[in-house]
């Protein structure tokens, strides 16, 4: 008989109380299947784990078993990648139902989605696609956020995208567009510092100007990730690839942002070339150190 060996989850009856939902202003990391076992065995010091909602939309099996065990010990943030908030099509009701049931089952401290789209006549497009910033798309995005918050029964955070191009019809800059979304819907914000950096470099704008215009008071979580530098005609383009450590320039921008916002839950995102657990924890602890310096200076 062939079997893929997957040892049982250790039970800790004395730890049967589920950890608080509230995500502290500390570093956290994305939860990866290859780290399930080590997390439960070593119980590392981390503020939280973030999950991609779509990875836990299967009916059962080890993903849910491990996540339940990890949820008993850590707060969880729930991060959706497929709701298509920015698309012209109606939101997928089945997907909203799945998101609502994950919210109910795992009581995440924060729930976030993207300012992007992914549903198309030809099927689901597995990327975070760009949209123009106009009065019409603003209305569309706000309607979708209203619908999501009402359906799931909680505030959602909206994440700023990484941009590679702009649209002719845009009449808002991104920071103004996001400011207006927050004003109209009451959603919170997830500020992806790597996306700010990547977009500014790709579009030839200033990341510091972006932060100055961005509604920082509404940020409840920060994302940090690595990007790829790829050659193109006449120079380079930065790709939001999540396959390498957070770049030094992005750490610099994070320090500038945290100095203004104060400490916030900060996620190290890594989806490709996933390194050993300890490498990701070290990056999360580096975010903790930045926040400790900001606290000490206050």
């Amino acid at each position: 008989m062939g079997r893929v060996v997957l040892p049982p989850v250790p039970s800790h009856p004395y730890l049967s109380m589920t950890a608080s939902s509230t995500i502290p202003a500390e570093g956290g990391i994305g939860l990866k299947a290859e780290h399930y076992r080590k997390i439960l065995d070593t119980h590392p010091r981390l503020g939280f784990f973030e999950i991609h909602a779509e990875n836990y939309m299967g009916a059962g099996g080890p993903p849910h078993r491990y996540l339940s065990a990890i949820r008993e010990r850590y707060p969880i943030s729930l991060h959706g990648v497929g709701l298509s908030i920015g698309g012209p099509r109606p939101l997928d009701r089945d997907h909203l139902i799945r998101l609502r049931s994950l919210n109910a089952r795992y009581t995440p401290g924060l729930f976030s989605e993207h300012l992007a789209w992914s549903t198309h006549d030809t099927g689901y497009l597995s990327d975070l696609l760009a949209l123009p910033y106009t009065a019409a798309t603003l209305q569309r995005v706000c309607d979708h956020i209203d619908e999501t918050q009402a359906f799931i029964g909680r505030q959602m955070l909206l994440e700023n995208p990484s941009s590679y191009l702009t649209f002719e019809e845009s009449t808002y800059d991104e920071a103004s567009f996001i400011t207006e979304i927050v004003r109209r819907t009451g959603c919170g914000l997830l500020l992806d510092i790597n996306n700010v950096f990547v977009s500014a470099r790709n579009l030839g704008t200033s990341a510091m100007d972006y932060l100055a215009a961005y509604p920082l008071a509404h940020v409840q979580e920060i994302h940090l990730a690595g990007h790829d530098v790829v050659a193109e005609e006449g120079g380079t383009v930065l790709i939001d690839a999540h396959g390498s450590p957070v770049a030094e320039d992005v750490w610099g921008l994070y320090v500038a942002a945290i100095a203004r916002t104060g400490p916030l839950p900060t996620l190290i995102e890594r989806d490709n070339n996933v390194p050993p657990l300890l490498d990701l924890i070290a990056e999360a602890h580096r975010a903790d150190a930045v926040m400790a310096r900001v606290r000490a200076a206050a």
Partner: peptide, 10 residues
């Protein structure tokens, strides 16, 4: 040829 029918890539 075949695009996913939903965001659940599982």
């Amino acid at each position: 040829k075949e695009r996913p029918s939903s965001a659940v890539l599982i």
